[in-house]
Design a protein around this nucleic acid. Sequence first.
DNA 1: ATAACAATGTTATTTTATTAACAATTATTT
DNA 2: AAATAATTGTTAATAAAATAACATTGTTAT
Lengths: 217, 217
Amino acid sequence: MEEKETFNHLPHKTIARLSQYRRALLLCLSRGKSHIFSHEIATIQHITPVQVRRDLMLIGYSGTLRKGYNIKELINLIANIIDSEEGIKVAIVGMGNLGRALINYFSGKRHKLSIVAGFDTNPDKIGNTMNGVPCYSASMMKDIIQQEGIQIGIITVPAENASQTANELVAAGIKGLLNYTPKPIDVPEYVYLEEYDMITTLEKVAFYVKMRSLEEE
Amino acid sequence: MEEKETFNHLPHKTIARLSQYRRALLLCLSRGKSHIFSHEIATIQHITPVQVRRDLMLIGYSGTLRKGYNIKELINLIANIIDSEEGIKVAIVGMGNLGRALINYFSGKRHKLSIVAGFDTNPDKIGNTMNGVPCYSASMMKDIIQQEGIQIGIITVPAENASQTANELVAAGIKGLLNYTPKPIDVPEYVYLEEYDMITTLEKVAFYVKMRSLEEE
DNA sequence: ATAACAATGTTATTTTATTAACAATTATTT
DNA sequence: AAATAATTGTTAATAAAATAACATTGTTAT
Ligand SMILES: NC(=O)c1ccc[n+]([C@@H]2O[C@H](COP(=O)([O-])OP(=O)(O)OC[C@H]3O[C@@H](n4cnc5c(N)ncnc54)[C@H](O)[C@@H]3O)[C@@H](O)[C@H]2O)c1
Ligand SMILES: NC(=O)c1ccc[n+]([C@@H]2O[C@H](COP(=O)([O-])OP(=O)(O)OC[C@H]3O[C@@H](n4cnc5c(N)ncnc54)[C@H](O)[C@@H]3O)[C@@H](O)[C@H]2O)c1
């Protein structure tokens, strides 16, 4: 019996790396490269070639011995694993500095992921569009999310409004949340949540910089 | 012989969590709380109480049995570990949407980390200040970084200028780099590098959203 | 006083992630 | 034609991280 491949058990870290590989591969492709070796991918990503080969093994992709991996094929396979066929729609709540930076960053990128709506409470922002993304009143959140079938929400409101916004998004039926405010939020277990705070990353860099200078002494 | 505690061997993940604990603790403190239990910290951070206790064990902090951990003491200890006494100065290169979002986010936060300079090539931006952070010409980078003793750089220029900017920062003597462009950069091994790309995070969320909806079928 | 409870701190175990080792393969060089 | 070199794919080993188990200790209730 033919077993349907689900890629269900890929390690979390592998998923993240596949996304990065794809980005690097697309760049290589645009430069006219057709094949690539594991050690080339590894160098770009600052990891080891073994890691790359192991990840590709896990997704069942084989290269050729002297040419390496076919870039187009590999991109397609990664797309197959990561992307949803129908595409996934994303909404961003809080069209401030960060919200705008993200929309700006995303627009023009192909991908099966697209930011299709922004929400804000500031009347000056409602009704505008930013890089093709319309800004709606936050009171319309539920309606528009359901109507458009938006599945993922990005939270970039001021920290004090984060949890309320999260609740509204959950109530609207969102399936995944990306919280960029420094305030950790709570969601039901059926909603996939990622939180990211820059300060943590920066403090980590600072810690290792400090450590290294202490070691030198 | 008294051994000087260096916290040299703390797991990477513990470092990141300590930064997060501190943020949560500061919030609790500001609300008038004086003590906190491991399970309370755990709930805020969406992790397990054991994880919290283990991290605190690693840094050698003990709570009291029925009151939990003294918030002030713990904050101070974490500060001791993560922060540098003298403070660390940070520069941001590329005062666009993202650069501004980050400066805006940072300003007002206490911390031993402060963004003290921004750099850009756009004449319209040079000479302005943003939330107290002056924007200098990118050609002044080396001078100002050395003069001010800036140790960490954040890169938020357009992707095509990322590696050149990284080189300039390294040449100026920077010790740690945080790269927000989607273009991976190369630095000498003595420079601590973190790279972050939102697209990876978003694609990860999308993948798990997709997986869960496939599982339901 | 004693039992039950709710915490902490720590060691042991399990899981996840990375790295190493190496056989197999094919192009290139001698 | 044989030796060499470079690369993949995979299994084995190691390392890092998370979780479980549990002894210990005060506190509260009985
Ligand atoms: N994670 C990071 O690295 C990072 C970096 C920068 C900023 N931040 C955080 O992101 C958030 C936004 O930062 P910013 O600089 O863009 O702030 P901002 O003030 O520029 O933007 C916030 C926007 O949210 C809108 N808003 C407020 N309440 C709302 C609500 N209930 N519903 C919808 N919209 C609402 C405001 O009108 C404003 O447009 C802050 O919480 C900040 O701390 C995080
Ligand atoms: N990692 C993420 O999550 C994320 C999110 C958004 C944007 N980005 C990336 O961050 C970068 C900046 O995004 P943005 O929206 O702020 O772009 P932006 O165009 O608004 O800002 C870029 C700024 O860099 C300046 N600049 C250009 N070349 C420079 C140089 N050589 N030296 C100094 N300054 C220079 C420009 O004048 C401009 O002010 C882009 O690479 C973008 O892809 C990353």
